[in-house]
Design a protein around this nucleic acid. Structure first.
Length: 197
DNA sequence: GACCAGGTCCTTG
DNA sequence: CAAGGACATGGT
């Protein structure tokens, strides 16, 4: 039913460390610019929670400059890394925790909100948490479902089979669809009044 | 040059 | 609670 025109989409093919890094860096930022930053991090051996936890903040800032908001994002990365290392010692121990515990826990990190948390859980730890982002919200509005993110999240999780792979693919497809039809046209051709007014 | 990007936090009314 | 602003670089 939903567009298979995009085929299988591989997002976040990295390990949990990289997913967490990407989730912070992509906040209000295009993914292409995040990739540049991740490349820089790799070059400097900073592409892990352990490394981020110990490196100087300045090194981190320089590497992620291309994503914008680099000072605040460096601080957020360090908060997250410090929490992960301090609380669990590393990804392995972290991955053994139940989903609800993990979610509560990383939401407590300054700079990790609902979307970032769900992205980490869904794509980094393969947990069935559906991610609601700006694109998803827009598409839903186009279809007439006008409500806030937490409600949308519940809605998707009720309608879809409780399967992480499905959540990942559906979300990815929605984003591709939104990029193509909602953003490029700026919704100017949309007949729903709420979009033009 | 204007506008926008896969958010989150802080401050006001 | 809702709304507005700050954070910053890179691409159209």
């Amino acid at each position: 039913m939903l567009k298979r025109k995009y085929g299988r989409i591989e997002w976040w093919r990295g390990n949990a460390d990289e997913v967490m890094i990407g989730a912070i860096l992509t906040q209000q930022t295009r993914w292409e610019n995040v990739e540049k930053a991740i490349h820089q991090l790799r070059q400097n051996g900073l592409c892990s929670m352990a490394a981020i936890n110990t490196t100087e903040r300045n090194n981190l800032e320089k590497a992620i400059m291309s994503t914008g908001f680099y000072r605040i994002k460096a601080a957020r990365l360090k908060s997250l890394a410090s929490h992960v290392i301090g609380e669990y010692g590393g990804i392995e121990r972290m991955a053994q925790q139940p989903t609800v515990h993990l979610r509560e826990n990383i939401l407590g990190v300054h700079g990790v909100g609902e979307e970032t948390a769900d992205s980490i859980l869904c794509y980094g730890f393969s947990r069935p948490c559906f991610v609601i982002d700006a694109y998803t919200e827009r598409i839903c509005r186009c279809v007439g479902i006008i409500t806030k993110r937490p409600v949308l999240k519940k809605l998707f999780e009720q309608v879809l089979p409780r399967d992480t792979a499905v959540y990942q693919q559906v979300h990815a497809h929605i984003v591709e669809y939104a990029k193509e039809y909602c953003v490029k046209k700026r919704c100017t051709e949309c007949t729903i009044p709420t979009l033009n007014g």
